[in-house]
């Protein structure tokens, strides 16, 4: 077990190094320079060169990269050219909003999918199964952006029940969480259902029934544990993506999170901010994946054995 976790941490570190390289070089491949964007179109070549020297952009790329990495290890992510403040402050400001949104989204997804998927899977072909599959089909068919717009239109514009933009109260969470959480619940319901159906067809389930165990215990205890692993894996992957900032949803609901920050920083060629945000996303994604793998290996011992 300990070995397994160490190995996974090692793999995660390699991934992070790769991501930092890709993030660093990709944003520099994009046309346009932060110096030009800061100074405006009227700037002379001398002014631009001076600004680039000030930002350290005149140094060779590898020097810039190692400076950046050295900074990361000291906890210094550099200055945002666009906001003229330390990147770490910006992130500290925005990250909690994204984390809260992601947390409630996953909570909603799990709260819906676990009962719905498992019940549907163990009552195949019944009305509740039909309902669950309809619910899932709908959630998977609708694009997030469309759900978002629909939500705003119905609940904010027509009914006036919920605020459409901003943060502050609990009511502000409802629409963004539902928008992100419904497709997640749909997907996980489907996975949970099929996991349950596969498991219930296994010999060991017949064997458990043959031991005189109550069907509800067979389903919710002995089959559930088998069926839930793929659900956790999927939720982990989606959670990783939400932590990177749900760009579309954060933009529509003016949610001051990481996703919005990333969107504006790319537009402004804010090199320090972009590469730090990408690195942060990768780090959070890898962290969630690591946690998922550890949880799954606790549930299913075969993962460690293989």
């Amino acid at each position: 077990m300990g070995n397994y976790i160490l190995r996974r941490i090692g793999q995660t570190l390699i991934v992070l190094v790769c991501v930092s390289l890709v993030a660093f070089f990709l944003i520099r491949l994009a046309p346009g320079s932060p110096a030009v964007l800061l100074l405006g179109d009227g700037a002379t070549d001398e002014q631009i060169a001076a600004k680039e020297a000030e930002l350290g952009l005149d140094k060779p790329l590898y020097v810039q990269y190692f400076r950046y990495i050295a900074g990361v290890f000291r906890g210094d992510l550099g200055m945002s050219t666009q906001y003229r403040m330390p990147v770490s402050d910006l992130i500290a400001n925005r990250l909690p909003n994204t984390l809260r949104l992601a947390f409630f989204t996953v909570l909603l997804g799990l709260a819906l999918c676990i009962p719905l998927g498992i019940v549907a899977g163990s009552h195949r072909g019944t009305a509740i199964d039909f309902f669950a599959m309809f619910f899932a089909l709908l959630g998977q068919s609708m694009a997030t952006i469309w759900i978002a717009v629909l939500n705003v239109y119905v609940f904010s514009v027509v009914l006036g029940w919920l605020p459409a933009v901003g943060t502050g109260t609990w009511a502000h969470y409802v629409l963004p969480v539902v928008t992100l959480g419904y497709p997640l619940a749909a997907e996980t319901t489907r996975i949970g259902r099929s996991g349950m159906i596969d498991t219930l067809n296994e010999d060991f389930i017949t064997a458990t029934h043959a031991k005189g165990i109550r069907p509800s215990v067979v389903h919710w205890k002995y089959a559930f544990k088998n069926a839930v692993c793929p659900v956790i894996t999927l939720v982990g992957m989606r959670l990783g993506a939400f932590l990177a900032g749900a760009i579309v949803v954060e933009s529509i609901y003016s949610w001051p999170g990481i996703g919005q920050l990333l969107k504006t920083s790319v537009g402004n060629r804010d090199y320090q901010l972009v590469q730090s945000l990408l690195l942060l996303s990768a780090f959070l994604f890898a962290l969630v994946n690591l946690l998922v793998d550890i949880i799954n290996s606790l549930i299913d011992p075969r993962i460690v054995l293989e």
């Binding site: 010999d203 043959a210 005189g212 544990k225 088998n226 299913d300």
Partner: peptide, 22 residues
Amino acid sequence: RKIRGNKIAMIFQNPLTALNPV
């Protein structure tokens, strides 16, 4: 249910699939 596993027990054909792996 009081009979299954208690008064009548069954051993299955394939031991590789008859035990719950988790």
